[in-house]
Design a protein around this nucleic acid. Structure first.
Lengths: 344, 344
DNA sequence: GCGCTCTTTCGAAGCGCTTCGACGATGCGC
DNA sequence: GCGCATCGTCGAAGCGCTTCGAAAGAGCGC
């Protein structure tokens, strides 16, 4: 519990000299500085956190808002919180955890009391109440995931266009010729959500570019029943499905296919792309391109620190390249047709 | 960003009157108090966190130390961190998350800088480096789980004796007559760890009380191979196994039994008791009596708050009654023999 | 009506730090 | 040798709050 005054006295210098010697914000003679540092070390001096916060008007604390919804995948979200904490610490910040109902209220509180210098928002919903809140806060905030209306916000998310293209490539490269996309519900797109549309357009364009038959449906309700029926009507030889939809719909894909005598991988390959849920624990896991915790959190903390230190709060959306996780739901079809004119 | 001075001025009173009106630490006339509260509300006044911390010499922050070992079960530990945060918030504290290598260093740092009023230690190891550290810290600390040497510490853990008795009761009540305990390795017991011994003794005593044959082994290495062989030598009709051991050993039980043509539940019932790992995702899950996150964290935070507010830092070990999670690894044997003289 | 107690409010002193302005000392050019 | 800039250090203000002691006012008994 040594204070800066103790260090100053022991070193025979003034308090401000100690402060400058430790912070390096003004030049101090090498001999004085070394003596101060040695004594500080010897006394085990560490600045009192709240005194420093009050004087410097910054807390070196980042709040992490993570509502843990009932449908939240613990393991995935644990990873995000942990990664954020690790990266933040490396940047000199501690992290305050705001969960459940306090995920929202805690943001307001930690911003208003200036407990936190910045906020990282995890587990973002389409119509997340934290988005409008963040717009009113004086405290820099970065979202990991995109709410429907991203105006005025700083967000990090998966590059959906790239994910759509990679999903198409994977299927086509494995010999599939009739592929369908189960997108989000119409309501979701109508609500102003932009990424399903970005994904959808990239999917259609790239399927065309690769020369395969493609169809798109939007689920009605919370099952894939109707979507799969419609896909099969349009593409009787459907051999690949891309899921860019919600967890509830995705979870029904295997049983719905089974009811038609179709088996994942054997008859129809499936890839979930641009989704925030994990399919690893589905009865039949699907290949997935999810948000990558490490990459997302690193990018998010970097942006946040830039906003705190550099004052750069320009709204922006940073898109991360997708990572493909192979869980065996894509099987090789007949060998891809030889491109014309190639020597076999 | 209204300050207490703004509120005081708007209400036409002094700063100290506002402070007392808000904290209730001195009596203030009802009319004055109401006016102050109304104006504070109107201005959206919230006290500046660090100013309050500095003046009151307390941060209302609890640090949560959670090293996330490679073998840590994310989901289980997520639950502990989340529950701690929820309970702490309800008690008026925010939680600072300290993970990985910072789980140790962060404790020292947040205690020395008085960033945290108290520390909750999760994911406790037998020979946890945080135990000796906690003894040197001025900051109240509560462990969730028991290190080998608990002297001088405040700990919350499962009631191992009760868990051992319940495991025996479950097996005996289901008609089992030859039950074995796979305990911890000898090294673990030799290292001064007390709970395996407590479990073991309660197991032996209670098996005897219930009149069934019992045997105990300690694994060598990280497999159940030798233990199961020895149990079968001693109890050829072995029909129940209780696991109070490490995750690595527990994970090998099913294959080792299978190699001998024995199937869990059908031939041998298995219960894991007093363990900190989840068996839910084993290929064959075992009935378990684990530490209960909600109960443990509530007890831990209660103890910590008592230490912070009440100054009660008496070292103690609080034991929680076990909760039985039935995952189907215990089957009914021949009906339990009728007690003598009972009308059937 | 005087002195007493009790209640309500105020002023001021910190909490431990950062940071600004200033001051003495030193070194330089002329 | 004098003035000027530069460097290293110091003192003091202030961050926004809590809390202590005291002052002012009200109510009471005699």
């Amino acid at each position: 519990m040594a204070t800066i005054a103790d260090v100053a006295q022991a070193a025979g210098v003034s308090i401000s000299t100690v402060s400058y010697a430790l912070s390096g914000k003004r030049s101090i003679t090498a001999t004085t500085r070394d003596r101060v540092l040695a004594i500080a070390e010897e006394l085990g001096y560490l600045p009192h956190a709240s005194a420093r916060m009050l004087a410097a008007n910054r807390s070196n604390i980042i709040a992490v808002s993570e509502p843990v919804h009932p449908d939240t995948d613990d393991s995935a979200h644990m990873a995000f919180a942990m990664e954020t904490t690790k990266v933040a610490r490396a940047a000199g910040y501690d992290t305050l955890l705001l969960v459940h109902d306090d995920a929202l209220a805690g943001m307001r509180r930690s911003a208003a009391t200036q407990l936190a210098d910045g906020i990282i928002v995890l587990d973002v919903d389409e119509d997340d109440a934290r988005a409008p809140l963040a717009r009113t806060l004086a405290c820099p905030t970065v979202f990991v995931g995109l709410p429907a209306d991203t105006s005025g916000l700083v967000c990090v998310d998966l590059d959906f266009e790239a994910a759509a293209r990679e999903a198409v490539d994977r299927l086509v490269d494995a010999g599939h010729t009739q592929i369908g996309l189960i997108s989000h519900r119409h309501e979701t797109l109508d609500r102003g959500s932009n990424f399903p549309l970005r994904f959808l357009r990239a999917f259609v364009a790239h399927a065309q570019a690769r020369g395969v038959d493609a169809a798109v449906t939007h689920p009605q309700g919370h099952t894939a029943e109707g979507s799969i029926r419609r896909l099969l009507e349009r593409l009787p030889g459907l051999d690949g499905i891309v899921l860019n939809t919600t967890a509830d719909v995705a979870a029904t894909v295997t049983p719905v296919l089974a009811a038609r005598g179709l088996e994942v991988a054997r008859d129809v390959s499936v890839i979930a792309a641009g989704v925030s849920f994990s399919t690893a624990r589905f009865a039949v896991p699907f290949d997935t391109m999810p948000l990558d915790a490490r990459a997302s959190c690193t990018a998010a903390v970097d942006l946040l620190v830039a906003a705190i230190d550099g004052g750069d709060r320009t709204p922006r959306i940073v898109l991360l390249p997708p990572t493909y996780i192979d869980l065996g739901s894509v099987a090789s079809r007949a060998p891809a047709p030889e491109p014309l004119g190639q020597v076999s």
